[in-house]
Write a protein that binds this DNA or RNA. Structure first.
Length: 415
RNA sequence: GCGACUGUAGCUCAGUGGUAGAGCAUCGGGUUGUGGUUCCGUGUGUCGGGGGUUCAAUUCCCCUCAGUCGCCCCA
């Protein structure tokens, strides 16, 4: 296959069967999040680069090496969105939504772009659903957001899920912890893996969940976030955990859980599937108080998550088959036109109807109907045409009966 | 960005230094108006792409593209 005939690396064509599954995920998200009071927002697929650079974090991998940045003809630097939250926060300001607080917004089926090495469940263009809740700085919001995420996954019929949570504390706690961690690792820096030495510069918290063998001996004795965290932050975290327990949402506390986006504070969580490989994370998010203020000076709390549709798609069970279509079998062009006319009426009443559009023997037309899984076949041959009738055949029982053309629609009802 | 594996028909795969096969699928037919079972027939592939070695490469070598696995990162 020539290069032009293949889609760009890390992208794919969703064919009808897969599209149906993705659509199902999207619809489930709208339905479930709708029950929690979320209204859908659709933001542009690209934003000014600064929207992401400044809010996701200049130093994050996502911004520094994975973003699709380009200059438009007017010389503006734009970027394809690498995640969902920043654009929604920008839209919050653009649309002066502070008067609607507290505000619940969801997005569903949005394309998201990251220049990464593709793998199963990791694409350069993937799609997300997610929610953002603005204006509640109390832990109940974190609890409800996580509950909404679980409800969504549950409604999709997923099993084998694990919720991991952690707290990063307030921005001050986070900064203090970072210092403490640096102080701990600095003396042994030379013994750490190459990856971790780099992490020490960018995001020291990341060293804690390193998989490199060299690092393992240092991790257990590293300072814990709880050591430096304010009592308020600890109380906040306890409330979140308590809420999850009350709602019966099982979780694992993972003190090393750190997100690669700079804007998180307090609660961070990730939901993994035990049925996936390295890309097992299917839904993740947290609290981002401060992000809204950072972007436009309003001190508004935020909590939310994003979820990757392609990863979910690999996990959902077979969808039930769509309802079977009605298929025509015709003999001659006059009969074909008559069939097309009747088909229009049947479609108006909601049926899926197929009319043979090519020159085919009746036998071939029946085979075609079978392949379409038609349950009912309507035959219009020379005799029927002359009599103004059609023959209705039940493909399962093989029974056939005559019916006046005018009565066909009422006979089949909603199919 | 790093390491490894893979790439032959629509799909799943076999195969050979002398330009290639199976199963399934597809399409057609089994006397002209009846399918799903069965029977018969049917290959439609630049053997991912480019270059090299060779009398000759799909097969060996190099590069490249893509996918997969792990790392990194993340949904």
């Amino acid at each position: 296959m020539s290069q032009m005939m293949q889609p760009p690396r890390g992208t794919y064509d969703a064919l009808p069967e897969q599209s149906r599954r993705l659509h199902h995920i999207e619809e489930t998200a709208r339905r479930v999040f709708g029950r929690y009071g979320y209204g859908e927002i659709r933001t542009p697929i690209f934003e000014f680069t600064d929207v992401f650079a400044r809010n996701v974090g200049e130093a994050t991998d996502i911004v520094s090496k994975e973003m699709y940045v380009f200059e438009d003809r007017g010389g503006e630097s734009l970027s394809l969105r690498p995640e969902g939250t920043a654009g929604v926060v920008r839209a919050y300001y653009s649309n002066k939504m502070k008067h609607q607080l507290p505000l619940k917004l969801m997005y569903a089926g949005i394309p998201v772009f990251r220049y990464e090495r593709p793998q199963k469940g990791r694409y350069r263009q993937h799609h997300q659903v997610g929610i953002e809740l603005f204006g509640i700085s109390e832990p109940w919001a974190d609890v409800e957001v996580i509950a909404a995420g679980m409800a969504f996954l549950k409604e999709l019929g997923l099993t084998g899920l694990r919720v991991n949570i952690n707290t990063l504390g307030s921005p001050a706690d986070r900064a203090a912890y970072r210092e403490k961690l640096l102080a701990y690792f600095e003396p042994v820096k030379g013994k750490l893996s190459e990856e971790s030495q780099a992490r020490l510069q960018k995001n020291p918290l990341r060293v804690l969940d390193s998989k490199q063998a060299e690092d393992q001996s240092f991790i257990p004795d590293a300072p814990k976030p709880i050591d430096v965290m304010s009592e308020e932050s600890q109380a906040f975290y306890r409330k979140v955990k308590e809420g999850l327990e009350v709602l019966g949402i099982p979780y694992d506390e993972v003190p090393t859980l750190v997100r690669g986006l700079d804007y998180y504070t307090h609660t961070v969580f990730e939901i993994h599937s035990t049925d996936l490989g390295a890309q097992s994370q299917v839904l993740s998010g947290g609290r981002y108080d401060g992000l809204v203020a950072q972007m436009g000076n309003e001190d508004v709390a935020g909590v939310g998550f994003g979820s990757g549709m392609e990863r979910l798609e690999m996990l959902i069970a077979e969808l039930s088959a769509p309802k079977p279509p009605v298929s025509f079998v015709v003999q001659g062009d006059d009969a074909r036109f008559q069939a097309m006319k009747l088909a229009e009426q049947l479609r108006e009443s909601g049926c899926e109807v197929a009319v043979p559009l090519g020159e085919q023997s009746m036998k071939a037309q029946f085979k075609r109907a079978d392949k379409l899984r038609a349950q009912t076949v309507i035959i219009i041959g020379e005799t029927e045409l002359a009599e103004g009738t059609v023959t209705v055949k039940d493909m399962e029982s093989g029974e056939q009966k005559a019916c006046k053309m005018e009565e066909l629609v009422s006979l089949l009802g909603a199919c």
